[in-house]
Design a protein around this nucleic acid. Structure first.
Lengths: 247, 247
DNA sequence: TGTTATTGTTGGCATAAAGCCACTAAATTG
DNA sequence: CAATTTAGTGGCTTTATGCCAACAATAACA
């Protein structure tokens, strides 16, 4: 049994060199989320070919073993090629592989989740590329290509579960932002209201934000809010517990 | 840009059908942990062939696109083939892929973490298969095959971070067990002492254990401890926060 | 047959974090 | 200069955790 390994590999290599070994196809897919008018959206692209022609899908595609140095680079590249976006936050979620998810045969896809603020490339994405931002719920209601409904759900779950102990939603906001905007981002991602005082206490005591001196934008109603941006250096996820439900 | 997709796939398929497309090699690897005399161990197998001949490695190997229905099944099968173990707990950790981790070229491996109690197959593993249980620290100190040092570290981190909010270490114990044994399992996995009273409060109030009527084994010193086993039905991870450090 | 050592189990209070809700502050509108 | 709206804080209640000492049940031993 110690050499079932050997058997396996020798068998594989022999066949591989003979050209008939069926290694699964390997792709990367990216679920990129943003907030548009307070609502969580995901970017989908419409497939131009078979299989699943015409269906909406997560941006992604085959790894290029010539140009991609690793998986995250392949994911970033695919996202950029299809949408023009350079993902500011990218995290591996999971890998799905079986005999039936792609009609062409056994295939494997590595799923990434990405987050971005909407403003920067808003018009570009909508007009130049074939991509479109969908409200998350609409995206989940339709029949996506391959097993992308499952992948999208996995990414959504990762996002919301990680939001319970990190500040991930920060990446969906344009800077600077108010604490109220930040709280609304958390609430939208978690799908549940948060207690104002507790939220502010936790975020502020975590000491990850700094007040941007900027003047609040004119035209708002009510008392103008202080503007914040993440302190330089910590960028990604800092640990902050943001559980409480209430309101 | 909307059809870089098409280009890509057509290009791929053309070459694939012509037989010269280089899809990366896809493997699964399993880091299986257990407790032996209170110490965390990981199971490694010694490689019989190149590359990395003679090196210790995580059990794993190529996906069999004929017999494996999906990735987790492939992982379970590989583990069983190489060690005789049928993993009682198996969880996907991450996927590593790049041009340099395997000298044969671009390759992708999907890493799984598994947990088991030591007793059931103890002698079998050590004598019949070419596998060996290593204390985790010794395993991490040596130079493993491929990028298995990184994979092992990723699995270890997943195990300990998830132990902060689940009862994963339960799977490393033989049933029934005492609360002290359970606490020691948590402490070994977390690498930090836990406060006795708080630990028991949390575990018991989570209502996931039931007292096994069994008589405590003879020969122990001090007051005999109550014996528990997980309540049927919840098996996997139940949410229990087990943070406190103290002591 | 005590006595001591050892391990398991629980009580009870101190401290810290979170929830709650009302009050104050600063702006706009008319 | 009210009324309205949104931002931000004070302060009490509730809950979770840390901590440590007491009490319980067994074995080893004098």
């Amino acid at each position: 049994m110690a050499n079932s390994d050997s058997m396996d590999e020798q068998h594989y290599l022999a066949n591989y060199q003979a050209g008939d070994y069926s290694s699964p196809l390997v792709t990367v897919d990216v679920a990129i989320f943003t907030l548009i008018e307070g609502q969580l959206h995901v970017l989908l692209v419409q497939r131009g070919n078979h299989p699943a022609q015409g269906r909406w899908a997560l941006p992604g595609g085959f790894i290029n073993t010539d140009s991609d140095l690793d998986l995250s680079e392949a994911a970033g590249r695919k996202l950029h090629e299809k949408t023009g976006i350079n993902a500011p936050y990218l995290e591996q979620v999971c890998t799905s592989g079986d005999a039936s998810r792609d009609p062409r045969g056994w295939s494997v896809t590595v799923l990434y989740m990405a987050l971005m603020a909407h403003a920067p490339t808003a018009e570009f994405v909508e007009t130049v590329t074939g991509a479109r931002w969908w409200p998350l719920s609409s995206a989940q209601q339709q029949h996506l290509a391959f097993d992308h409904n499952h992948l999208l759900e996995a990414a959504r779950q990762r996002l919301s579960s990680k939001t319970a102990y990190t500040v991930l939603p920060i990446h969906t906001l344009d800077e600077p932002f108010t604490l109220t905007q930040l709280q609304q981002a958390f609430e939208e991602v978690l799908g549940a209201p948060l207690e104002k005082k507790s939220f502010r206490r936790r975020i502020l005591s975590a000491d990850i934000l700094e007040e941007s001196g900027e003047a609040p934008p004119p035209g708002g109603r009510g008392r103008p809010a202080a503007l914040f941006r993440p302190k330089a250096g910590l960028e990604d996820h800092a640990f902050v517990r943001v559980v409480g439900e209430g309101r």
